[in-house]
Design a protein around this nucleic acid. Structure first.
Lengths: 341, 341
DNA sequence: CTGAAAGCGCTAACAG
DNA sequence: CTGTTAGCGCTTTCAG
């Protein structure tokens, strides 16, 4: 006689149907150690016939591992994080883990709310955009929460967390060397807020090279790290320092804004002004002209972070923080020109 | 005396510490119905002191609801899906659910693998990019899997699934009307594969208006729905049909590719050729000139899909499929010009 | 190699 | 209002 309600089939059903104990089914299905070949094959056949799907929630409850990781970024719509997310998801999937996506909006309370919720779900690890806008107390709470956390930038005090990030300083150096090699001397730099770690590192590398080569200090403008920010800064720049022959924008979005402002001012890239960005977003090649920029390994950052997380999750009790620095490189396209002379 | 191993504190600990039974703690903490005010407050105080975090995995095991939803897109790096994902995540969060991110790459096996894995995790619902590249059998498997599924386009045969999608046909009409109103008569259309649902709908609307107004049938080129696709088609177009005054690209990425090809051919947008896209990706305004396009409510699509999922998940046994059609609108920027005459 | 039993942390009747 | 008793579906000793 058949039942009406199509209940989900459990390990018990498989056990009954194949005439063995649930524990045998469990062993047969996961690993298969210590089970007679025949029994196992029969169990597997029954499981298949019944269309049995193990309940990973139940398994997680006893094993203590949920096989899910979380990614907390400021906003997945930022193409930078979309790339990181893809890398992270691929790496997670390769390890048979899910990736939970969270958009923290750089809001401390919101982000802490996410983390607490994730802890209740017993995620095996958390991958975070950043923690440097959190209070010291909040950072402490995170670092002692029991699950491994990897940050996508440095800025964690006293090495509380593991980190993965690109070599921003080297990238800044690359940009400066490139501009110099093209003969530029009157250079402007568009960057983010003064205390933003990544931005500061890029600027440091950039400035260091100019100084080493005896070039003039660049005109440096601080603003929002966005299209609008780049646009505004460039407008101001063009009004006040129209003699610049080149601009280093500390990220591609700012470079796009700069390109717009330059265009609106009736000037052209690279003919009138050379422009170099940072990040190498996929869309940086759709711009006219295609943007020369510093490539940052975004996908690889996501992968690396997940690898660290997984290792930390396995190690257990006393995980030692790991810091991984990823290389950058110059992507030469068509937004910079060589100065004659 | 303190223990060394910092075990995670459970509901039992709270119960013991506050001198009541676990079930009372459970009631006090969730809902609070049928618990004396004082007892509840005391329990809550103890829970706070012990820094108790309920284990949602355990709760899920008994309630049968995991409070997680999944989003399966082809690739989160596609800015379109990033927007959808953000909408979905916000809506999920508002309902206290997590969102698991999956990148299916439009690979049938990969996508089915994801779904099976998600079912084992007992997600409460799945939000999918598309299912029309799956075999009939696979679609059947999905539709009878037990958890609600919402698709981000139509194309599901026999209404097996719920769907949310933009009014593509209306968008195509809008584009045609606009081009016509600017005086364009020699129009080209760049679109995707012949059997792609969304693309076909856009083309249908577009062509219908041209026909209604007695305009010539547009030159229609089919190709990849990407930057490269738009670029290639436009190169071919410019070689063979150089008399076109305007191009309708069936999505923004193709429009970007078209813009590049036009630029490389020494022509200018909109002076020589007007260009209109579809999607209104955030980056469409960074292009030079800013791209005129049809706005599609991507964020809202994600929200709506999650709402439907949640409603379906609540209803339980016999969920009736829901189909939601979202409006589109013309975003006029600077990539189309009025023809004199 | 297999079965019996205990329990992961929590909720949900059911009594009292 | 609160305690007792059963499990949710699975893994994991521990015997046999």
């Amino acid at each position: 006689m058949e039942t009406f309600a199509k209940m989900t089939v459990t390990i018990k059903d498989v056990a009954r149907e194949s005439g063995v104990n649930v524990s045998t089914v469990s062993r047969a299905l996961s690993g298969g150690y210590g089970v007679h070949r025949e029994t196992r094959q029969q169990v597997m056949a029954v499981a298949a016939r019944l269309n049995y799907r193990p309940n990973r929630v139940a398994r997680g409850l006893v094993t203590g591992r949920s096989h899910s990781l979380a990614l907390v970024v400021s906003d997945i719509r930022n193409p930078f994080f979309a790339e990181v997310a893809r890398g992270a998801e691929d790496a997670a999937r390769a390890a048979n883990c899910d990736l939970i996506l969270c958009n923290g909006d750089l809001d401390a309370d919101k982000q802490m709310g996410y983390v607490r919720s994730l802890l209740e779900k017993r995620v095996d690890g958390i991958l975070m955009n950043s923690a440097d806008f959190l209070s010291r107390k909040q950072q402490q709470e995170l670092s002692s929460c029991g699950v491994p956390i990897v940050l996508l930038n440095r800025a964690a005090p006293r090495g509380l967390f593991s980190t993965v990030h690109a070599d921003n300083e080297a990238g800044g150096r690359l940009a400066a060397e490139y501009l110099l090699s093209l003969g530029h001397r009157r250079i402007a730099q568009l960057t983010g807020p003064r205390r933003h770690g990544n931005m500061t590192d890029r600027a440091r590398g950039f400035n260091a090279v100019l100084q080493e080569r005896g070039a003039a200090e660049p005109v440096t403008l601080h603003g929002a790290m966005s299209f609008a920010g780049g646009w505004e800064l460039t407008r101001a720049l063009l009004e006040r320092h129209s003699r610049c022959t080149s601009i280093f924008a500390a990220n591609d979005m700012m470079a796009f804004g700069a390109a717009r402002a330059i265009w609106e001012a009736g000037k052209r890239v690279p003919d009138d002004i050379s422009l170099i960005g940072f990040d190498n977003l996929e869309i940086s090649m759709v711009l006219h002209p295609p943007l020369t920029t510093i490539h940052q390994p975004k996908y690889e950052t996501g992968c690396a972070a997940v690898e660290i997380l997984l290792r930390l999750a396995k190690t257990g009790e006393h995980p030692v923080a790991e810091h991984r620095l990823l290389g950058v490189k110059l992507i030469e396209r068509q937004s910079c020109r060589r100065l004659r002379g």
